[in-house]
Write a protein that binds this DNA or RNA. Structure first.
Length: 419
RNA sequence: GCCUCCAUCGUCUAGUGGCCUAGGACGCCGCCCUCUCACGGCGGAAACAGGGGUUCGACUCCCCUUGGAGGUACCA
């Protein structure tokens, strides 16, 4: 089995394209199977080196490797011209205004055999004699694809359903050349939340955007694999090997799927929490360009869904943050200043400084004042973090250290007297 | 317009004629846990588009309608 992924370099790799790449990759993991990456760059206008690099970048990030390529379709022009000449010679094609058209009989039909959809019949009277070469001699997409897949020995063409309508044309070219078409499998399209074909309008529709938003490649891979088929009625989390073992083209769904960012987020959270702390720390330090994040990561990991959740949640552990006025107004009332005062006094004499002693000291304050726990803990939280949201309060105070904690509480107490 | 594809909870899916008073997951609602936010646990609402057939029996097979999508370039 030989499959291929043949993106046209129009910019960022869409998750639809990523899913197509993944399914091909899964197929290529089997015995005697390989994947060829071919860039469909015959449209010079949009085929820039930058665009090509974007596609490769996205594939590498997703850890989808290939066995052959990347090949440039444009560079195969001599082979394409050879095929055009042969078609002209046999009379299967003819010149028209300088361009070359394939002769399509008025009668009959061309049948496309698709693994996912079965036989699909296209009546010839609905297909015109289509152009296979421009008047300047350059080959067109349908010809280039058919010839490339043939020459490269591609056995299974697995691509998006948007290519289905073009398939009979490719089959006709192959047959005119006396060749057998490959096996086809047209995957259902991926739609945005509005049910329309995925486009740049649908934020987070590209792999690079997902990356920037703090998603993990392994989570993205797992999630997009699920858009189009079930791998096991009992579970949804799989390693790539497990996905490859269970994947079957025959079982791929026929209907379009809508990309659900919420579910991806959930998947990402699951993967994130299972990451080794060192691993997560390394990824975050690369993302933020900072060092020494390990202590903060240890506290924040269980509350993160994406990598970008880290900074808002744990920045206060790394450096002082501005006070969020809303957080202040919400918490610093009803005797909060008195409670904070008591908490400060207790923390000032905790010995030795550590998680257990800090917790005991703060809980003792709660008991002594006979108030609800949150009446002490929330003011402390806001004082040290500037926010009502943070990792566990005892862990946070312990990690911050006595000196820094007391200074921040003092700043908060000053703020009381200023207002 | 013409051609083609598709149709199970809001979403992703399981279901391949009786196992279905339709299962799971995300999301949503309620409760629990609880120092906030998450996580986690428990429970709940939520679907076979409609109409004809076929069959002893249809979510599953066929047809029509409706709805959605893709294509229809000297783009890919």
């Amino acid at each position: 089995m030989k499959v291929r992924f043949a993106p046209s370099p129009t910019g960022a790799l869409h998750i639809g394209g990523a899913r197509t790449a993944l399914y091909n990759w899964l197929l290529a993991q089997g015995e005697d199977a390989s994947l060829v990456l071919r860039i469909e760059d015959t449209d010079r206008e949009r085929s820039t080196p930058e665009n090509v690099e974007q596609i490769l970048d996205a594939l590498r990030w997703l850890e989808l490797d290939w066995d052959e390529g990347p090949l440039s379709q444009a560079e195969r022009r001599p082979e394409h011209e050879k095929a055009i000449a042969a078609l002209l010679e046999s009379g299967a094609a003819y010149e028209d205004d300088g361009a070359v058209r394939l002769r399509v009989p008025d009668e009959g039909e061309t049948v496309v055999t698709d693994v996912i959809r079965g036989d699909i019949r296209f009546p010839h009277d609905s297909i015109d004699d289509f152009v296979i070469a421009r008047s300047d001699g350059s080959p067109l997409y349908n010809l280039a694809v058919a010839i490339d897949d043939l020459d490269m020995g591609v056995t299974h063409v697995v691509r998006g359903e948007d290519h289905l309508s073009n398939t009979p044309r490719q089959v006709m070219i192959l047959k005119a050349l006396g060749e057998d078409p490959p096996v086809y499998a047209h995957l259902p399209l991926l739609h945005g939340p509005d049910g329309k074909k995925l486009s740049k309008r649908h934020g987070a529709a590209s792999v690079q955007e997902l990356r920037e938003q703090g998603y993990l490649p392994e989570a993205v891979r797992n999630y997009i694999a699920l858009l189009g088929t079930g791998f096991d009625p009992e579970r949804e989390f799989f390693t790539s090997d497990e996905l490859a073992e269970r994947f079957s083209l025959e079982r791929v769904s026929k209907s379009a799927a809508i990309f659900d960012a919420d579910k991806l987020r959930h998947f990402n959270g699951r993967y994130l929490r299972e990451l080794a702390p060192d691993d997560l720390t390394a990824r975050l330090e690369e993302l933020t360009g900072r060092d020494g994040l390990a202590p903060a990561v240890a506290l924040a990991q269980e509350k993160m869904q994406t990598l970008t959740d880290f900074w808002p949640l744990a920045a206060f552990l790394v450096e002082r943050q501005d006070m969020d006025p809303k957080a202040w107004d919400k918490v610093m009332k009803d005797g909060a200043d008195q409670n904070l005062q008591k908490a400060r006094a207790a923390l000032a004499v905790v010995e030795p400084w550590g998680l257990e002693p800090v917790e005991r000291a703060l809980r003792d304050v709660v008991e002594e004042l006979d108030v609800k726990p949150k009446q002490v803990f929330q003011p402390v939280r806001v004082a040290i973090s500037g926010s009502t949201i943070s990792p566990g309060i005892f862990e946070s105070v312990a990690a911050l250290g006595r000196e820094e904690t007391l200074e921040r509480i003092d700043l908060a107490l000053e703020r009381f007297s200023q207002t």
